[in-house]
């Protein structure tokens, strides 16, 4: 037998199931064994005990009043609030990001007027708490009771009362969109700046138009750094819509407040809202995961083995040689 064949044969023996229980068969090539991690196993045990305690208290503490949670979880009022939360989030996301990309493009423009306007916008919006902005938009009628369209310092053509301009929902939509736009602009700007200059020059040297360079070369390569931060922003935004309950908009939280102010079942109703926010955030996180995978395809080497395999490998659930392959 040639030396190569001999080492292949011994490798085969080492992989057989009883190789881990019996002493290794002497062979010319020593086997590589990954370091054991007893601390991680201790962590798993501690974690399981804590999880059991949490489940136990959730099930046995009567103050959670799970039956009431069940009664309200799918009730009409809550679902109406949920729908409002979802579409407000979606609408704010779309308009916020459209405005945000424009603001980022202005900031990166070599036109000093545009970049200054963009800088000022981001500075102002980021400096004022979203709740304060929300109240300003809602109370705009007290600031400017009448708005008019005309020549500055000259005659007016149209004018209207601001009191009729902004309903509570409209004020919420505008305030949150403006807030998201400022943060989205910074995220998009960061992503664009992360694209190497050479990529743009290569595209320009091929005679691509500026718009085409942006759409086909810059944006796809900015996405991997834009998406994680945007996922963060979107989830924050979803939860920030609960601010609108302050101006009496019947979103998810607003509805639950309305109900518990009436029946004083505060904890179970807050649980209803919590469970829905958990569910929505989980869905968004899953969507983010797939988006990241989509835009990471050119840089990933090999195929991902799934988080459960990686997790198991971290604990050395799969013994020996395979650990090294999985965690490499």
């Amino acid at each position: 037998m040639s030396p190569v064949a001999a080492s292949l044969a011994s490798a085969k023996t080492a992989e057989s199931p009883d190789a881990t229980t019996t002493r290794p068969i002497p062979s010319p090539e020593p086997r590589l064994v990954a370091r054991r991690r007893p601390g991680r196993w201790a962590g798993v045990v501690a974690g399981l005990v804590l999880a059991a305690m949490v489940v136990n208290t959730l099930l046995t503490n009567p103050n959670f009043q799970w039956s009431i949670v069940g009664d309200y979880f799918l009730s009409d009022a809550i679902l109406r609030g949920l729908v409002l939360t979802i579409w407000l989030t979606a609408a704010v996301l779309v308009s916020g990001y459209l405005l945000g990309v424009a603001v980022a493009a202005m900031r990166l423009s070599d036109n000093p007027v545009l970049s200054t306007v963009s800088f000022g916008f981001v500075w102002l919006v980021r400096s004022v708490p979203p709740l304060v902005q929300l109240l300003f938009w809602y109370e705009i009628a007290s600031l400017y009771p009448r708005l008019s369209l005309g020549i500055p310092f000259g005659p007016e053509f149209v004018s209207f009362q601001t009191a009729h301009l902004f309903s509570a929902v409209a004020a919420a939509y505008v305030a949150l969109s403006v807030d998201v736009a400022a943060f989205a602009a910074e995220i998009v700007r960061g992503g664009i700046l992360a694209v190497p200059r050479g990529q743009v020059e290569a595209a320009e040297s091929l005679g691509l138009s500026r718009f085409r360079v942006f759409r086909r070369v810059i944006l796809p390569q900015a996405m991997p750094s834009i998406i994680p931060a945007s996922g963060n922003l979107l989830i924050g935004m979803l939860k920030a819509t609960s601010l609108v309950s302050v101006i009496a908009v019947q979103d998810l939280l607003g509805t639950t407040e309305l109900i518990y102010n009436d029946n004083f079942k505060i904890i179970p109703l807050l649980l209803v809202a919590t469970l829905w926010y958990l569910l929505l955030t989980t869905l968004l996180s899953i969507g983010q995961h797939f988006l990241e995978r989509h835009f990471g395809r050119s840089t990933r080497v090999g195929t991902s083995s799934g988080w459960w395999r990686t997790w198991g490998a971290g604990l050395r659930i799969f013994p020996g040689r395979r650990d090294l392959e999985v965690t490499r």
Binding site: S205, L206, Q221
Partner: peptide, 18 residues
């Protein structure tokens, strides 16, 4: 852009679209 389209360029660091 139209003028550049008629002139090829090869860069030190390749600059292929990653």
């Amino acid at each position: 852009a139209a003028q550049r389209a008629r002139i090829g360029m090869v860069f030190q660091h390749f600059n292929l679209f990653a």
